[in-house]
Design a protein around this nucleic acid. Sequence first.
DNA 1: GAGCACTGC
Length: 702
Amino acid sequence: MAQFWKPGTEKPEARVVDDEEGGVLFLPGSNSLSSSSSSSGYGYVSIEKQRQRLPVYKYRNAILYLVETHATTIIVGETGSGKTTQIPQYLIEAGWAAGGRLIACTQPRRLAVQAVASRVSQEMGVQLGEQVGYTIRFEDVTKQDVTALKFLTDGVLLREMMADPLLTKYSVIMVDEAHERSISTDILLGLLKKIQRRRPELRLIIASATIEAKSMADFFRPRKKRREPKNEEIGLKVEPAILSVEGRGFNVQINFAEEPVHDYVQAAVSTVLSIHERESTGDILVFLTGQDDIDAAVHLLNEDMQTNGKHSSGLVILPLYSGLPRAEQELVFSPTLRGKRKVVISTNIAETSLTLEGIVYVVDTGFSKQRFYNPISDIENLVVAPISRASARQRAGRAGRVRPGKCYRLYTEEYFLNHMSNEGTPEIQRSNLVSCVIQLKALGIDNILGFDWPASPSPEAMIRALEVLYSLGILDDDAKLTSPTGFQVAEIPLDPMISKMIIASSQLGCSEEIITIAAVLSVQSIWISGRGIQKDSDEAKLRFAAAEGDHVTFLNVYKGFHQSGKSSQWCHKNYVNYHAMKKVLEVREQLKRIAQRIGLVLKSCESDMQMVKKAVTAGFFANACRLEAYSHNGMYKTLRGSEEVYVHPSSVLFRVNPKWVIYNSLVSTDRQYMRNVMTIDPSWLLEAAPHFYKLQQPNLLH
DNA sequence: GAGCACTGC
């Protein structure tokens, strides 16, 4: 059997080990770290002890061995295993950051990056931003030549590849939460596999919470034809290694519905009441699909408390979704008072992004809202759809964080076993691909259809993305990035249609204004909304409303905000979201820096809104619509696909219904609503995209 | 007169 080096400060030597089993090594609890050797005080020992109690600790040597001897190591670790905070430290201790090299650990979310980096720097007893640092958009807390371990979002690592396509400064890259299969994780995995061929010494660690490790291993296993002789030469195994680390969650008892449930909101409410009546103390977490469902459930529970107080007294009912104002969101983290039971009614935000302590009961309706993309109509839709078994397990796990818990699934076991999919569809197969195609093109990957994806998007979606980018003048006849437009668009971290609008504004002399509009469009909403203040906020909005539509209205709001000295009171008074405006300022500054770097002209057109509108049209001509001549209910048809659409009631052009408009995006509910709408002169469409309109349908614009 | 699951550069 293999011999192991003593963990310590020296980098382990590469060694070839007889391993007939084929790469998978499982080695529980046989090693010990000489922990006392470097203890320098009580606090340090205590942290060291804590570290050793984590389940991942007993795999320390096994993990280091696998990383040393395998190009790719896949680690399946349940929540609480400690993999995210410990493995990067093991790598440092083993010398992977020696000689000025860097260790990277990616996360899908900004908050996770900050939290983990801060935790790890504490454990190592170093100042955050020195040896341990992090990088997220707008924030680079690292120090050149000092930082050895860097946490970052996978999106930031993708951006870094544009400057350094082989990521040469990294010796090990750990991709965490790979099971979530976000678009940027999937692109990153595809690219890292490519990098491995050019940089055989690079080590990858793919960390995932679910057992789909096998399909991940299949992905990273090189095709038989082109075996990697280079790797074999340096004693590296190309076969990915897989290692499982148990978690530290408590047992969760699963209860299924006996019969299929018809009204899941009502069923969720009854389940909460019966838990409250029959079960011992402990908070309840309910998973619903969206704001509508959640408000309805909150209402039903409150009603019950009033009419039937006996059953529901002592319940503290708290909604939770991302659109909720920050202060209300934070209520879910406040400790439960004695004799009270907290009921958090949440969207999927509590499945991954937020972790609630004290949850003992989970009610899982089996549904969530998911994005789907139709490449034929080029429309993204948000639909309520059944979750996957992996999601259901994740939801149930939320009940076992503090003590053994219970999960109530509002669907039958038969349904769970025979009708739920094992894993959800990866995001890349449910999305518009324009941004992702641009990123790959910018990295010199021209054959998009032949790219080795962890999960391939449909050819229809890829072709549609190529068409859209061609019509925007970003790709040429050979599907290569155009110069300079295509290369400039790739540098701007926004949807290509918005980037195109910015580039056009540089030529039209209104880039200051357009960059403001781009920044506003990239935040969720700059308005404060909510029940009870609707009328007031609508009235406030009218103070800024421009006849040209929402885009120019945004300019008015920004101007007012700027003149007020960026005051939060001004925002409050005008029903404008102060946090959103601060984000607008940040994005705006970043866009200005990028614009200057790629040679755009920063210039204001003062009050010439015609230029602003032409620039918007240059990016969004494909979203042009005409009011139906005999329509009395404000029905529009898109010029491109004759889809029936309406102005969204939140738009300043609602009920104004000008004949010609373009929109920024569509939301589909019972109708398709255009969000962020602007009036246009139809002749601009031919000007902006002659090939797109004139050639297609010559009589369209009359 | 309606609504935005969740991220990210």
